[in-house]
Design a protein around this nucleic acid. Structure first.
Lengths: 214, 214
DNA sequence: CGATACATTGAACAAATTCAAAGCTGGTGG
DNA sequence: CCACCAGCTTTGAATTTGTTCAATGTATCG
């Protein structure tokens, strides 16, 4: 695999002893694009460390549609909540690109884990990140209108906008492609943005965009 | 106030030394019902420990309406995310009943705080709780329909249902009173529940209720 | 008992999705 | 290199789900 435990930032400050112990209860696994890491409702068994690739976290609504929540990039700890609390995963995760995961048998880890202050700090960091992620999801989905979401995305992810199709942007924003198309049309009509043939966006009035979501 | 630091579960395992230090950087404050603890967008200064009373966490949408998120009961640590990350509060908090808060000057706490494994564990516990809360908010607001929300609430909070007015239930569920009224009417028509004059609910078919939200 | 808040019901409205059809585009194989 | 076709994008119309508005009815509590 080409990965070494001691080179992973999470564990770099662990003693050699602990690294050996960790090695005995974990293994690396490669995943292909579109492969599922876990599914909403699954019982957790492993704690995951994303080492390579892009992993999408999403929920599925009763109509079977995917509600985008977040995309993780390396290095991220994933699944700690479900493991700590021993509850089913509240969301699903699938690879967008191919990637690599360190899978750690959580049960065997538990006892020693929380004694190590460095590891505790990593967990706190990871949980803090999760709270922020969820807080953002709530803000995006419960407070912002479709137009506000689009405006925010354009201002905050201009480069990403140009690099993917409207299709995918709509999925990330949890709006239909039609709604995105209509919203972009409106922003163009209002001379706030323009979009050239190569899907490059020109922001004429960043302030006006910002006003739409703040 | 009648509160002692060493009797607060969060700090019961702290050494006497640390308790003294904590005492020097914190104080108790009493709040009346409806009083605000902090407002969305405020800069954090204190870490809060709710010792008494019920504290509602909510967001405000662009129309000025309150979006209910959670109600904290004692003993809860509140505001740790905003303090850790030094970001503005992502939501507001106000007292539903009168209550008491221990306000800790976060800045002065920081250095010693994370060295204490007991305190670290409390933080992890608190953050874990927050992740669960937010995860539930997302599920309730993004996945469930109004009918599903009502059905879930009836099944999971039957006693609470009887003790408050539809008014308040609607606020907790983030639906309009009209929608709640119509949904209850439908459930009664379908003979899944009935409600007597004293707002007592009789669940005729708990399974049917559960099917509506799972 | 009576004022005031709460609950119910119907009708209009709002925001976004879905459906359908037509127009583009861009990558692939000839 | 170009033509084709599948998959995007756009646009309009219908639909969905819930809120808002308005009117009426019903509790509740001083």
């Amino acid at each position: 695999m080409g990965y070494k435990l001691e080179e992973i930032s999470f564990f770099s400050k662990m003693g050699e002893q602990n690294i050996k112990k960790l090695a005995s209860i974990s293994f690396f696994k490669h995943y292909h694009a579109n492969e599922l890491l876990f599914y909403e409702g699954d019982d957790p068994k492993y704690l995951y460390i994303l080492l390579d690739g892009v992993l999408r976290l999403y929920k599925t609504n009763p109509k079977g549609q995917e509600i985008y929540m977040h995309q993780f990039v390396p290095v991220s700890m994933i699944g700690e909540l479900a493991n700590f609390e021993n509850i089913k995963f509240p969301a699903s995760a699938k690879f967008i690109t191919s990637g690599t995961i360190l899978k750690i048998e959580y049960k065997k880890l538990e006892e020693d884990f929380f004694k190590n202050p460095e590891i505790c700090m990593e967990i706190i960091r990871s949980l803090t990140t999760k709270v922020k992620i969820l807080s953002n999801v709530i803000h995006q989905e419960m407070i912002l209108t479709s137009e506000a979401k689009v405006a925010k995305f354009i201002n905050e992810h201009t480069e990403l906008f140009q690099s993917i199709r409207n299709n995918q942007i709509a999925a990330i924003l949890n709006v239909s492609p039609e709604t995105l198309s209509r919203t972009l049309a409106k922003l163009k009509k209002d001379a706030i943005i323009s979009i050239d043939k190569k899907h490059s966006i020109i922001i004429h009035d960043s302030k006006a965009l910002e006003l739409l979501y703040s």
